[in-house]
Every structure is written in structure tokens, then in C-alpha cells.
Design a protein around this nucleic acid. Structure first.
Lengths: 216, 216
DNA sequence: TAAATTACCATACAAATGTAGGGTATTTAA
DNA sequence: TTAAATACCCTACATTTGTATGGTAATTTA
């Protein structure tokens, strides 16, 4: 049954199945409760619940959801980070000089949670100490909202030449300046049309887990 | 209908209604989906769903839940913090000298969410800058787990003489020392049996919302 | 080329679900 | 003291829900 040198990834979800999974996540995250078969069917224009039923079966077989038999709205997401942070960290970001590699791509199917909810925020783990003076430290998780327009002075996440950075954003006449709080790092200046620069989003929050850290 | 000089608080829920609301929150927070009438009835030993139905009506009339008519499991909590932080902040905590007042009590009906889930973590907003060097700042929200044994050097939340503090914890021979990172604040030394001292929990995480802050 | 998977359709059914209406006894408020 | 509100009970009903079964056409895999 299982193929040898090819491991099962998210890619093995078909387009339709992925759309349905997307809708599931959307509902569960957004409305709070999973939809019924009928609700899903209605959303996709299916005349029949059985269609959804079968898709659920396929998606479950591939391990992305779990059905609680007989229970109404008994669908659970499998790939979730259950505790405090509802979305997985999608990659590491250098707060200092651009060092760390951004994960494959922000919108591949490989990173489902983010690809699914571009309207929503997502998480990045910070590496490096260039934002020390903005009280963001290596290991912290920043919450990024990709749908806000950055204002001068705000901390943003951006991709620059295949690396990602978290820095303060300043828009000048013909350029964009990304400034570290830490004076050890020099500001990065980007001409506005610089192709490999892409603003990912605004950092709206920071989360730090203290449990792993050694006590002083 | 409405009384004059007395405003409607959580206290206006009857014991039974509060128990049901507790169960609702427990289920929604824990299992993820709201229970059905039947499930609630079974939990409380009611022979009939109608009983729960009527309690739901009463609780809704008092504004604690919202029923989505005809929708199965269509109960929503009203008093919730919807976004990132699933639990409300229950009070302010002085990171510096004990200044701020702890809310009425941790287990009154006034603070339902905490009273309800003592097993789980809860949130406190930090006021003061005594933990500046531990990278916790005024306005940050600390996540407190009340069910962990503190180890030396860990940051804990504690109640001391009607004030709450967030400090590093050190257990000595016959006393407990609560130390600020900020040298401006002197350590607080508590004899072990000091009655008005109560350890609330261990700070397991810090969350900071950046959106409100002014850009540098 | 044969077999499996995918993507829909339809029908049928028992159980679950929310709702409504009516009843009783006790407690609380006007 | 009278009227609400509370806290349960019961029966009844139309829908909703999950599930099962069977079918068709297109695509993918072996």
C-alpha cells in the first residue's frame, strides 16, 4: 500500500479535499465549532451530504482530521498545536542580520495553517538579538498579521533575498529602511522596487515560553 | 424590571445556572465544541433536555451565553476574549513593589473563568517594571500555571498582603525569597509560614500585544 | 489494460437535536 | 400576599445529523 521512497505529505490531499479541510479549519478557528456535513455540503454547493461524508473519510484516512463517530460536529483537526498558540510556528526569522532560511515558501501546501488563513495572523520564531532593545529576544515567537499596512516605526517581518527578518519599518521617499534596535546591526535600506524584498506582515504580538528556560 | 442602585453582575446567576455555565465553558474550552442539550442533561443527571433548555434560556437572558437558534451545539460564550488569548486577564499584578490590588478573590463567582479552571493556566497583566531585566514589562500579560511546583529561580506569581507580585522565586532554609531582577527593588523575604503569603503559580509564558504601542 | 481512487449523485433510516407546550413544587421579590 | 422566578418533570414534533448502501463518470495508479 505504502510507497517506498516517497513519504506522505500534505500534498497528498487532493484539491477538493484541501478545500474542504480549509473550510473546516476556517470554521473551527473562526466560528469556534466544526460544521456539520450539511453545512459543508451547502457551502460547496453539494446536493448531498454523502459527498462530504466521503471526503471526510478520505481526509481522515490521510490523517488530517479525526471523526468522533455518531457525534454531531464531531470533527477534530489533527495537525494542531493545542495549547496556547493555536497556530504552528511556520519558520524561523532572523532578527539580526538576515541569516536564517525562510521555510520553503509561505504559500505552499507544505505549510497548511498559514496557507489556509492568509487573512489571519501566523507565527514566527525569532532568532538573533537585533531586537533586544525592542524587548524581543531569540526564541520568542512573534505573531505576524499579513493584512495590515505598516506604519513608520512598527516592527515588521519581511523576506529579503531568501532570508526573513524582523525589524522596525520606516518608509522614506524612495526607499524602505529596516532598522534594528540593536546598534550592533546596521539598518537595511531597500529601494522601493527591489524585487526580492517582500513585506510579510506586521508584528502584532510577542509570545515567550518560559518553561524551557533555565532558571537564573 | 431592573433594580436601580444595584447593577447586574455575575452573582445574579443562580447556583444551578452557574454550574451549567461552568460546564459549558469547561466543554467549550476543553473539548472544543459546545455540548448539546442532551449532553448537559446527562452530565447533571436530568431526565429531560427541556430542563437544560430552560436553564439555557435563563442564562442567555442574563447575557452570559448566546443561543444560535436551530443550530446544534449553537451555544456561544459571551464573556470571552476571542482572539489570541483564550482566557480573560483576571487582574493586574505588580511586578515592582506590591502595589496593585488583586481582584476580589481568586475563587469568587466574580471571576468565573479562573474559578472554573484552576487546573489550567490563567492570565495576569503585569504592572511595574521590576522584572525589566527578565524581559517582562509593564503591560505584558503573563500566563500563570497554578499547578506546578516552583523551582528556585523560576518566575512566579504570588499574593502577599492583598497585593500580587511577579518575581523570581527562591526557597531558602526557613524562608522564601522573592527577588526582582531590577536592582531598584529589594528582595522580599517571607517566613515560610507567613499566613498572608500565597503562591499563585508559575509564570510559564509571556504575551505582549504590540498593536497599541506607539512606534518608537 | 485492469484496478483503484476521486468526485459527485440518490435514497433510506435510526438516532439525536432544538423547540414548544403544559405541569408541579419551592423559593424569592414586589 | 400575590406574582415571578426557579428548578425540575413529561410528552410531542419537525428537522437535523451521521451513517450506510448503491450508482456513475472521470482520472490516476499499477
Amino acid at each position: 500500500m505504502k510507497k517506498a521512497g516517497k513519504l506522505r505529505t500534505l500534498r497528498d490531499l487532493t484539491k477538493v479535499q484541501k478545500d474542504i479541510l480549509d473550510f473546516l479549519i476556517d470554521q473551527i478557528k473562526g466560528k469556534g465549532i466544526p460544521p456539520t456535513l450539511a453545512e459543508v455540503a451547502k457551502h460547496f454547493g453539494y446536493r448531498n451530504r454523502a459527498t462530504v461524508q466521503q471526503h471526510f473519510g478520505a481526509i481522515e484516512k490521510k490523517g488530517f482530521i479525526k471523526k468522533n463517530p455518531k457525534l454531531s460536529r464531531g470533527i477534530e483537526l489533527t495537525l494542531e498545536d493545542k495549547f496556547f498558540v493555536p497556530k504552528p510556528v511556520i519558520g524561523e526569522v532572523a532578527a539580526g542580520n538576515p541569516l536564517t532560511i525562510y521555510p520553503d515558501a509561505i504559500d505552499t501546501i507544505e505549510l497548511p495553517t498559514i496557507a489556509r488563513m492568509p487573512k489571519d495572523s501566523f507565527l514566527l520564531r525569532v532568532k538573533g538579538d537585533s531586537l533586544k532593545d525592542a524587548y524581543i529576544f531569540s526564541g520568542d515567537i512573534v505573531i505576524v498579521n499579513p493584512n495590515l499596512e505598516p506604519k513608520n516605526g512598527q516592527i515588521v517581518a519581511a523576506v529579503l533575498d531568501d532570508a526573513a527578518v524582523v525589524k522596525r519599518f520606516y518608509k522614506r521617499k524612495n526607499e524602505i529602511e529596516l532598522v534594528s534596535e540593536n546598534p550592533e546591526y546596521k539598518p537595511i535600506v531597500i529601494e522601493k522596487k527591489y524585487p526580492s524584498f517582500k513585506l510579510v506582515g506586521i508584528v502584532v504580538g510577542v509570545y515567550r515560553n518560559m518553561e524551557k528556560k533555565k532558571a537564573g
